[in-house]
């Protein structure tokens, strides 16, 4: 029983990370109608941007986080302007392939600058809290609390601000949004800012939970997409349900099968859910 509770804790932590990545994937799909394959590597870029702030400026990780989010948002906007925007009038397939290329470029750039070795933000082991028989690390609390705060902030942005409403309207019916006076390019810009910033947060939390490595985000791409699809791609709220489901399922699976099969679990969950609910948990667009 304690083992299962322990795995649940790990699952919620992983789910929080996946959620932050999946929200971006879902928003980008909803607005731009393409699967952004460079999203995992955007997470890596964010994680290393925080490393710069921690190592060079001596900041604590929580202070480095906003800087990393800003840096990744800037990178995402720059990539959109230089690579994706000129291709936007072609087809979603070309955008998808070019994002795959961008993924390789980002990963190589990270490896070029920081090398292929494992890194950590702060060396040393911190003693976890012990609640009954379940161990909860300080970093775990930071990750889950950070994800909750960011998700609430996003919710308020989407519901209360004019730009957030324009974003929802555009994901709902792009042409009608334009007819209503929404400037598409402005919404696209905000989509990358939010998607990039949340990817950075996911990356920093992932590195905090495990370690920094140039492929750390790339390995998350499958579960992040699984979470987005599970929640109904194009629906950012679905990404929360999807992220937690995949995270918990992956960690619980290690009770019965070897941890190397975790990615396969993500895959199995989407297959099963899509058979039962073809439009995802919250019924996104097909």
């Amino acid at each position: 029983m304690a083992d299962i509770l322990q795995l649940l804790v790990y699952g919620v932590v992983l789910g929080s990370i996946l959620t932050l990545g999946a929200i971006g994937v879902s928003l980008i799909y909803g607005i731009l109608r393409f699967a952004h394959f460079a999203h995992g590597d955007m997470m890596t870029v964010g994680a290393y941007a925080a490393l710069v702030a921690v190592a060079a400026a001596g900041l604590p990780v929580y202070a480095a986080l906003p800087l990393a989010m800003a840096a990744a948002a800037a990178v995402a906007v720059a990539i959109d302007r230089i690579v994706y925007r000129p291709l936007r009038r072609t087809s979603p397939m070309i955008l998808l392939i070019s994002s795959f290329g961008m993924a390789l470029v980002l990963r190589s750039a990270v490896q070029l600058v920081w090398g292929p070795a494992n890194r950590v933000y702060v060396p040393g082991i911190r003693v976890p809290y012990q609640v009954a028989d379940v161990r909860i690390g300080v970093d775990h609390l930071v990750i889950v609390a950070g994800a909750v705060v960011l998700v609430i902030a996003l919710h308020l942005f989407l519901r209360r601000t004019r730009t957030g409403k324009a974003m929802r309207a555009m994901a709902d019916n792009a042409e009608l949004a334009r007819i209503s006076g929404v400037d598409t390019e402005r919404v696209v810009l905000w989509t990358w800012v939010i998607g990039g910033a949340l990817a950075a947060a996911a990356g920093v939390f992932l590195a905090l939970d495990t370690r920094l490595h140039p492929t750390v985000g790339w390995h998350m791409l499958l579960p992040v997409f699984a979470a987005a699809i599970l929640g109904g791609i194009g629906k950012p709220y679905g990404a929360i349900a999807g992220g937690l489901t995949i995270g918990v399922a992956q960690e619980l699976s290690t009770a019965v099968i070897a941890p190397v099969y975790k990615p396969a679990v993500a895959f199995a969950v989407i297959v099963v859910v899509l058979i039962v609910r073809p439009r995802g948990l919250l019924g996104g667009r097909g």
Partner: peptide, 26 residues
């Protein structure tokens, strides 16, 4: 302009649809 098809934001409420109509003059 009211298009022939797909002329509402189906996933949003009536109030939000109207609000979007006034997007340029909130």
């Amino acid at each position: 302009y009211v298009p022939q098809d797909d002329n509402t934001f189906a996933g949003m409420t009536v109030g939000e649809n109207l609000e979007m109509g006034a997007f340029l003059r909130p």
